[in-house]
Design a protein around this nucleic acid. Sequence first.
DNA 1: GGAACTCGCCAC
DNA 2: AAACGTGGCGAGTTCC
Length: 464
Amino acid sequence: MNITPKTQQAYSLLHSGTLALARAERQGIRVDLEYTAKKKIHLTKNIERLERNFMETKFYKHWCHTVKNHRPNIHSDSQLGSFLYGVKKLEPTKQTASGKGSTDEEALTSLNIPELNTLLRIKKLKKLRDTYLSAFEREQVNGYLHPFFNLNIARTYRSSSDKPNFQNIPKRDKESMKITRDALFPRPGHQLLAFDFSGLEVCIAATYHNDPTMIKYITDPTSDMHGDMAAQIFMIDDFDRNREDHGTLRQAAKNGFVFPEFYGDYFKNCSDSLACTWGELPHGSWKAGQGIELGDETLSDHMRANGIKSFDAFTEHIKAIEKDFWENRFPVYAKWKERWWKTYQKYGYISMHTGFTCSGVMGKNDVTNYPVQGAAFHCLLWSFIQADRIMIRDKWDTKIIGQIHDEIVLDAHPDEIEMVCKTIKKITCVDLPKEWKWINVPLNIDAEICDVDSSWSNKKKLKI
DNA sequence: GGAACTCGCCAC
DNA sequence: AAACGTGGCGAGTTCC
C-alpha cells in the first residue's frame, strides 16, 4: 500500500501542516506534576492491596503450583491463559488472532470467576498509572508536555501522535477520564477549549458516494440515523433519543452496528457486540430479567416479547437488518463501494478528494476506508493551518496546542473565547467548503470548554 | 541485553 | 465470496 501526494495542493497541505503542527508541539500543554506524583502513589497503594488480596486466593495458589517454566506472575496474560484453558480446562468464549484462548476483559468477565474481577481491576489501574501518568512525568519538560504530531506514519495520511500520544487519553470511561485528564491544564489564567467536527467521517464518505438517504440524514436536523437503527435493531416503535435508556440503545446501534458496518464489518460480529457488550445478554437462550434495564423491564424481556428469544435468533435478526441496511436504506453507498473496488482492481489505484493517490496492495475495505479517513483528517488539517495563520497574524494570546483527528485543542485566554469561536466556526464551516468544492454537504462543529485554571477533566459543552 | 513478537486497551 | 479502518504503548515472552 502506498499513498503519494499527487497534486501541488496535496504536497502543500502536508508542508504547511507540518509547520503548523510544529508550533502546537512547541507550545505544549501544562501538566500538574504534584498531582501525577500523588495520584501514582494512590494508585500504587490500591494496586498493591488488590494484589495481596488476589495472592491469598485458592485460585492464585493453584496457579502457582501449576505454572511451568516461569516464576508465577499475576500480570502475565499468557500464564493466565494456560492456567484457565490448559490446567482448569475451561472453554474459551473467544480466541485471539493466533488462535489461543483470549484473556481480554470480555473473555474473563464471561467466565464468572470473582477472582478474575480483581485481576481486571488491577489491570485497569496499572494501565492508568503506567501508560498515562508515568508517561506524562517522563515526557514533560519544565512542567509542559510537547506531544508530537506525525504526518508520515498513517497509511491514510491521517496523523499520529506520540511522546506522549495526545490522541488516546481516556474519555468514555468516567473514572479513567478523571484520573488522567486531571493531570492536564492550560497555562495559568487560561482555559482549555476544543472544537470537533460532528460526524465528519460520515459527511466525508457522503461526498464520495452521494447516497441520497445519507445526505438527508446529514442535512435534515430532525432526522437521526443512529436513532432509526436503534429502533430497528431493538424493535422500538416510540423511540425517543432523549429517554436515558433509549439513548443507551442509540449508542449501542451507533458503535455496535452502524460504524462497524461502514468500516466493512458484518452481521456476526455486530450481533455479538450488540447483544453481549452493549446489551449485556449471553450467548444461548435468553431468559426473563436479563440484560440492561429498559424502563420497567429488561432488554431480554423486551426482545422476547418481540419474538427474539435467543442469541441465535438475534443474529438472524441482525443479518436481515444488515441486508436491509445496504440494499434498501443505503443502496447508492453500497454501489459506490462495489464501483470503487472494481476501479481499484482495474487501474491499481484510487484517488482521494484531497489530491492523494492510494496504490499498492489493498483489501476491499481499505479501498473505501482510506480515502474517507484521509480526506476527513485533511479537513481538520486545513482548518488547523488557517487557524494557526490567523493566530500568528493577529497576535493571539490564545494558542493551539494539539489535534485529535477531527478536533482542534486550544489553550485560550478568557477574553478571546468569543473571537476564537467565531474564527474557528468561520474557517471550518464557511471557508473550508468554499476552498474545497467537493465538500457538498454542510459541515458542523461542536465546542467544549473548561473553566479558568481547571483541568481537562471538567469540560462542558459550549454553545457557539 | 536488545529486537521482534503477541496481546490487550486507549483514542478517532 | 468474504468478513472492522487508522494509530501508540506497556508488559510479557521468545529469539538471537
